[in-house]
């Protein structure tokens, strides 16, 4: 089971009966010591009650096909075709409130933030291997308070990536499992947009910053093997987008925003996000660099009639 990303998710899991023993113990500990979290919990609990009250309203129960009194949920509308429609609808609604942006008179663009990473957890420990699971970072990356006069873009800490001397590139990687997200509606074009901030404040290197997005048909657990086979055979992943950014040598220490967008091809299951540095001279002694404020969004573009 994936670990809850934050306290609100932990509370939701508890209130919806999804939390296991370890999660409840964790929530309990946090509630004891955090008054603000207790207020969040109380608000979430009240929300749960109000939702239930509304669900019990006769007209809504009938409309929504949920009959609480008999504890008899009707899932008749959950046919395979309807599932796609439901999930599309869900996706649309959760984004329409804040993110639907008309593009001219014809094309509408909707965005759903799915990953936001500021590296604020000092205990963050990552595997340095190629990734083999979704929703977590891999790489020689740790959370630090920045030095060398660098201020974080967000929060108080940044990610520090430490290349190995002799290696030409070094990246932090993350897999998006598209099965965890609703499918795009017919006629919608789905893209993954990734942006992050890079800084190379330490002397001795002139790197390229790099954002690479690679689409695979394999599930996250099979991506590592597919990645290796791809390198050995020379075959491409379903699609790869590579964005290099060469900062000027006199402002390496500043933050540089680098972004890339991948139009997700049909048949994609996993998208691997790589954020890293390409070292022009790998034999130069390697120095660390910083990453911060990583933002990943699923973006759908479509004509309003579709």
């Amino acid at each position: 089971m994936d670990k809850p990303k934050d306290n609100e998710e932990l509370i939701d899991r508890y209130l919806t009966g999804m939390a296991d023993e370890a999660e409840i113990a964790l929530l309990d500990e946090r509630l004891k010591s955090d008054e603000q979290l207790r207020q969040t919990y109380l608000a979430a609990s009240r929300l749960d009650s109000f939702i239930r009250e509304q669900a019990e309203q006769p007209e809504i129960a009938m409309k929504g096909k949920v009959n609480h009194r008999r504890h008899n949920f009707r899932f008749s509308w959950f046919t395979p075709a309807a599932v796609a429609g439901l999930l599309i609808g869900l996706f649309s609604a959760s984004i329409v409130w804040a993110y639907a942006i008309p593009r001219g008179a014809e094309i509408t663009r909707t965005s759903l933030p799915i990953v936001s990473q500021d590296f604020e957890d000092p205990a963050m420990q990552l595997k340095s291997s190629l990734p083999d699971r979704a929703d977590q970072w891999f790489g020689r990356l740790v959370s630090v308070s920045p030095t060398a006069g660098v201020s974080p873009v967000m929060g108080s800490r940044v990610g520090r990536l430490s290349p190995v001397t002799g290696n030409r590139s070094e990246s932090a990687r993350y897999i998006i499992d598209l099965h965890d997200h609703p499918e795009p509606a017919p006629g919608h074009v789905r893209s993954l947009q990734v942006a992050g901030y890079f800084s190379a404040p330490f002397p001795g290197q002139e790197p390229k910053f790099r954002v690479e997005l690679a689409a695979f048909s394999e599930a996250p657990s099979d991506v590592r093997q597919a990645w290796k086979e791809q390198r050995e055979s020379g075959e491409e992943a379903l699609q790869v987008v590579l964005r290099n950014y060469l900062p000027k040598s006199d402002n390496l220490a500043e933050w540089h925003e680098v972004s890339a967008s991948l139009e997700i091809p049909e048949g994609t299951r996993s998208v691997v996000i790589s954020l890293g540095v390409f070292r022009l001279d790998p034999d130069q002694p390697a120095t660390d660099f910083y990453l911060d404020a990583i933002d990943v969004q699923l973006v759908d573009t479509y004509e309003p009639s579709t």
Partner: peptide
């Protein structure tokens, strides 16, 4: 309906 089902 999905939100209701999760809370019911």
């Amino acid at each position: 309906e999905l939100v209701f089902a999760a809370s019911m």
